[in-house]
Nucleic acid binder design. Structure first.
Lengths: 188, 188
DNA sequence: CGTGGAATCTTGTCAATGGAAAGATTGAAG
DNA sequence: CTTCAATCTTTCCATTGACAAGATTCCACG
């Protein structure tokens, strides 16, 4: 075993994402992650400072992944409904990231990358809603539409992940509920 | 100080709700709660078994409170929109409970009260949606409407609580977005 | 080539935590 | 008054997060 792991940072983040997805953020242990990676207990400190640092890095990575996912759906011409489906798909494929992203108590307040990544994701979402609202000038309040869209898909993702809502195909269900909110977009 | 605290169970749950609301479920310490209540560190064990037991009791209490809140809004004739507002109001007034309710990783799997309380809350929500859908026979899928309503208000509550959405009056905003989803209900 | 500094990782330590065992105190029913 | 169950305490152990100090390796520059 080499003294230098080579890619400890990524290895730890991946292990943390798995552990959070399986047992929740409260249950993860830096020492356990270090053991799985085959390094000593103090190795993670060098890369992340402390536990909050690791989770903050994970959250920032999550926001970047989310921005890419949503932007990809928009650029492929799916409309606002398919952007919502992409949001839920991201949450299902990266439950560990998703969990950490929306729990500020787990973050380091002094981190700079996290707010930047969050802003990128927010812009990606807002761009899609702006397109939709732009085609419907009678829709009075763009801000309300944006919050409604975000709330709907975020809530659905959360409820499915926590097991509160059990549905066979979450993405099909997302499409159905998003069309209730954005009927004009359904015919695209 | 009496040997018997008198109401340790409630005291600990209230302290836990405050601590979770302030610092998150990952940061709470049974010993710290015991100190605040003026008892030894092993006292909570008797009432809750372990940490998960305390959080499970908190979640069950939350579901009962939520059921009461939503049912109250329905019985006072507010319609489905005002039920959604009540849901968000519950989350804002009981952030500690709300946090714990939707994190199964924090719960004891063998608890029986929690599923029962959750079912009561689910019925309370479903009753309101059924009323709305009943007045709109053209609305094809009642199950989809129920999930859409729940997702919308749950997502909004979560986003406001985590600070992802900043809005002056969350209840007014909830009313606005709920009317987008249930326009027929707006004129009640 | 080789050397000095920076990056990476280890060992050792400390206070705090969750949990369990064993026992003390109290209330309540008979 | 006695006995029993409920409630709480004291004590102990393994684990954890964080930190300090030191070891090892890589790399850039001479």
């Amino acid at each position: 075993m080499a003294y230098h792991h080579g890619d400890l940072r990524r290895t730890l983040m991946a292990a943390a994402a798995d552990a959070v997805a399986e047992s929740g953020a409260a249950a993860i242990s830096l020492r356990e992650l270090a053991r799985r990676a085959g390094v000593s207990n103090a190795a993670p400190t060098h890369h992340f400072g402390d536990k909050a640092g690791l989770l903050t890095a994970l959250a920032a990575e999550g926001y970047d992944l989310l921005a890419d996912t949503v932007t990809g759906a928009r650029l492929s011409g799916g409309g606002i409904v398919e952007m919502g489906v992409a949001y839920v798909r991201f949450a299902m494929e990266h439950p560990g990231h998703f969990e950490v992203m929306f729990h500020p108590a787990l973050h380091r307040a002094d981190d700079e990358e996290l707010p930047a990544a969050r802003a990128r994701a927010g812009d990606a979402l807002a761009a899609g809603v702006a397109e939709y609202v732009g085609r419907r000038p009678e829709e009075g309040d763009a801000e309300t539409a944006r919050i409604a869209a975000w709330s709907l898909v975020h809530g659905h993702a959360t409820l499915v992940l926590t097991g509160a809502v059990r549905t066979g195909d979450p993405q099909a269900r997302t499409r159905a509920i998003a069309r209730l909110l954005f009927p004009e977009d359904a015919a695209r």
